[in-house]
Design a protein around this nucleic acid. Sequence first.
DNA 1: GACTCCAGTTACCGCAAGTAACAGTTTAGT
DNA 2: ACTAAACTGTTACTTGCGGTAACTGGAGTC
Lengths: 214, 214
Amino acid sequence: MDTTQRTDQQRSADRRRRELLEAADRVVLRDGPGASMNAIAAEAGITKPILYRHFGDKGGLYAALAKRHTDALLEALRAALDAPAERRERVEATLDTYLAAIEARPQVYRFLMHPAEGGQPGDAGFDVGKASAPVLRRMGEELAEVIEERVDLGPGSQQLARVWGHGIVGMMHAAGDWWLGERPCTRAELVRSLADLLWGRLAAAGDRVGGPGF
Amino acid sequence: MDTTQRTDQQRSADRRRRELLEAADRVVLRDGPGASMNAIAAEAGITKPILYRHFGDKGGLYAALAKRHTDALLEALRAALDAPAERRERVEATLDTYLAAIEARPQVYRFLMHPAEGGQPGDAGFDVGKASAPVLRRMGEELAEVIEERVDLGPGSQQLARVWGHGIVGMMHAAGDWWLGERPCTRAELVRSLADLLWGRLAAAGDRVGGPGF
DNA sequence: GACTCCAGTTACCGCAAGTAACAGTTTAGT
DNA sequence: ACTAAACTGTTACTTGCGGTAACTGGAGTC
């Protein structure tokens, strides 16, 4: 029962866990977010209880799965966010990176954003936002950090940055979701339109004929 | 089987339907989005099959329920959007109306935004966005209409307005969701911060010390 | 060789969606 | 008045999923 022994076991368990996650990934990508534990186990060549031993419950498995993809996505976003360029270019690069990601793998995106809850009704009260897609939260928080650290916002900058972080992420997400469903324009056009919005073009635009505009 | 007769029946059915929806409303508000059909039927003083006769399946019931609340919310938003004031004031009024609504009835909000899917795995392919919360889509579309109709955006205005409609709604939604969970500031502060964001303050702000800002 | 772990299995429980088949009651037709 | 439809409601069932208990076989350890 010395250290190497234990490390071996742990390594084996970790490898197994990765294999299971990869199998789960395949199934979720094939069957959608409603994929059953049985299906995942079958894909991995084993049976349900093993999944439960590794991940506790379905939420655990999905959380682990989501973490993988979220980490990957955040990595890509960070790169775009930290690129050496001026602000507008960075914003556009970040938007484009996100949109390219959801465009390339819509199933992954769908899984991350609409995890299909499934919470038993016997659960506790309404912890609003707790069951919501945590991906957006993480993205919002990270963006807030970058903003607060890079942009000079005067007093109350931290709160402002957080609001903006979550707001911008939400804008990106909603616009991306809609765009992915309808494909009304190219990705570049979408990026440009959103950046224009953030650059205050709504405030700068004139009214249309007939009274005060929106 | 003349017309009046049939109308009577239809009226009765409609009344029943409303009663059922109100019962469902109570249960969903009490038990959360995972409320079971049995529970709803019990609250209405009847049993499951009747619910199924009226609404087809759980999705139908939830859709009907969501439509009610969505209509009410959109009504309120339209009022704020059409108020006689200048643009910035309207934007703030609209944001505040939305936030006040979700603040007043977080359970309703939660139900509308996170309907807990539940789609059987045997379903068709990934119609991304189809199962997504339709509330946001409707809000986005309506806002787009208002923008396109009131603001002079030059060529390509329709597409731009739609992108902005969905983007702004998403911003409002995400920021509201986060705010409702953490309550980091007052509603008025949040409204102001978001309006500032839309008014291009991010673009106008200076860089912080040490290199180009975000 | 007996002992202990561990991966893995089968077989089950509870619960919720959805359905089939049956029963009471009002309404229409003759 | 008597039957037939149509509507409302019920009980009792099937199916399928999440989750668990209890057993089984094989690896290493004393």
